[in-house]
Amino acid sequence: MADLPLALALGAGMLAAVNPCGFALLPAYLSLLVLGDDSPGRSVAVGRALTATAAMTVGFAALFGVFGLAVQPVAGQVQQHLPWFTLVFGALLAAAGVRVLAGRRLPGMTPQLKRAPKVTRSLPSMALFGAAYATASLGCTIAPFLAIVVSAFRSGSAAGGMVLFVAYAAGMGLVVGAASLAVALTRSTAVPRLRRLGAIAPRLGGALLLLVGAYVAHYGWYELRVQDDPATADPVIDTAGAVQRALADALDAAGPAVIAALVALLLLVTLLIRRRGRTGRRVRADEPGAPERPV
C-alpha cells in the first residue's frame, strides 16, 4: 500500500470530523462529557472520554462502511435525499434541547436502574450518536470517502481497502479524541463553576442541543434549496462555513502526526497527574496523626 493513499484516507477522516454538514455536532458531543451529574477525577474522566470516543468512532465508521459498500452503486440517487435526513435529525435534536431546557430528562433507551450509568453517556448511545453524526455528514463527505476507500475495494484489493477504511476511521477518531481528552482534563475546573449555577447548568446543555439542532436542520434545508438553485446564498451557513473552514485548514496544516502527538501529550499529562495524586495521598497517609493503613 503506497503511503500517499494512506495519508489521504487519514487526512480525509480528520476533515470528516469537522465537515460543513455535521461539525456543529462535535460541541454537542463534548458537552455530554462536561455536563454530567457526577464529578469524577481527571483519570476517570479521561477514561470515559477515551471509551466514548472509541464508541462514537465505531458508530461513525460503521455507518460509512455500510453506506459506502452497500449503497455505492446508487450513491448519487441516495445522496439527493440525504438533506431530508439532515433536516429531520436536526429538528429532533432541537426538540431534545427544548425538552432539556424545560427541565425534563431525555427518555432512556433502557430501563433506569439504581446506580446505572446515564444513557446519554453509555457506549451504545455514543455509538448511535457517532452513526447519527456520520449520517448528518454523508452529504458533505461521502464523495471523498467513495473516491479513497470504496474505490480500493472495487479495484479488487480488499486488504488495501480495509487498511484505508481503518485509516479513515482513525483520522476521525484522532480529532474527536484530542478534543475529548482536552475537555476531560479541564473538566474538574469547569464543572465546579457550572455547579455554582445550580439548575442552570443542565439547561446549558439543552440550549447547546437546541442551537446545534437548529443549525443542522437549517443546513439540511439549505442543501434542499441548493438542489433547486445552486446559486443559493445563506448568511447563517456562510458564517458557520467560515468557522468550519478555519477549523479544517488548521487540522489540514497540523496533519495527523501533530494531532497524534497532541493526543499522546494529553495522555502523558493524565498519567503525570494521576501519579502526582497517588504520591500526595501516600505522603498524607505517612504524616503524624494519620490513621494507620491496614496490613
Rank of each mutant, 00 (worst) to 15 (best):
G97I: 01
L174V: 02
R121T: 15
P111A: 08
L247E: 00
V58N: 11
L63W: 03
M56W: 00
R104D: 12
P107T: 11
R196W: 07
A217Q: 10
L265N: 00
A62T: 15
P294A: 11
R284N: 08
G76D: 13
V78T: 12
R195A: 13
I273F: 15
L69Y: 07
G90T: 03
P73R: 09
A132Q: 07
A24Q: 10
T239M: 11
A12L: 05
G108R: 13
V58M: 12
I142A: 11
L25W: 00
V78P: 02
V163I: 14
G177V: 04
L92A: 13
A250M: 05
L146R: 11
L6Y: 05
G76F: 13
G65C: 09
V18E: 01
P83A: 10
V243R: 05
A49F: 00
R115M: 12
G13T: 06
D238F: 13
S39I: 07
A91K: 00
D234Y: 04
L26C: 04
P230E: 06
A75Y: 03
V175H: 01
M56V: 06
I273A: 15
L30H: 00
G47M: 03
L15P: 04
L93P: 02
A127C: 05
F89V: 12
L265I: 09
I273S: 15
T186R: 15
L138T: 11
M14G: 05
A290T: 05
R195I: 04
D252K: 07
V74K: 10
A290I: 06
G103Y: 02
G289M: 09
G213V: 01
L10V: 09
A75G: 04
V258N: 03
L50H: 10
A214Q: 03
Q227S: 12
R115Q: 14
V295N: 13
G255L: 04
G13C: 08
G139N: 14
L6P: 12
V258Q: 10
F85P: 11
R225L: 09
G65N: 06
P288C: 14
V269I: 15
I142E: 05
P124K: 11
Q244G: 01
D3I: 15
R187P: 04
D228R: 14
A94G: 08
D286I: 06
S155C: 10
I237P: 00
S188I: 08
L15N: 10
F60E: 01
M172R: 12
T239K: 08
A127Y: 13
A250F: 06
R203I: 08
A214H: 02
A242V: 10
L262Y: 00
Y215Q: 02
N19A: 13
R245P: 06
I148P: 04
A254V: 01
Y222F: 14
V295Y: 07
K114V: 12
T135W: 15
G47A: 05
V88P: 07
G206M: 02
F89R: 07
Y215A: 05
L194Y: 02
L33H: 05
G47E: 02
A199V: 08
N19T: 09
A201W: 07
Y29E: 03
V166T: 04
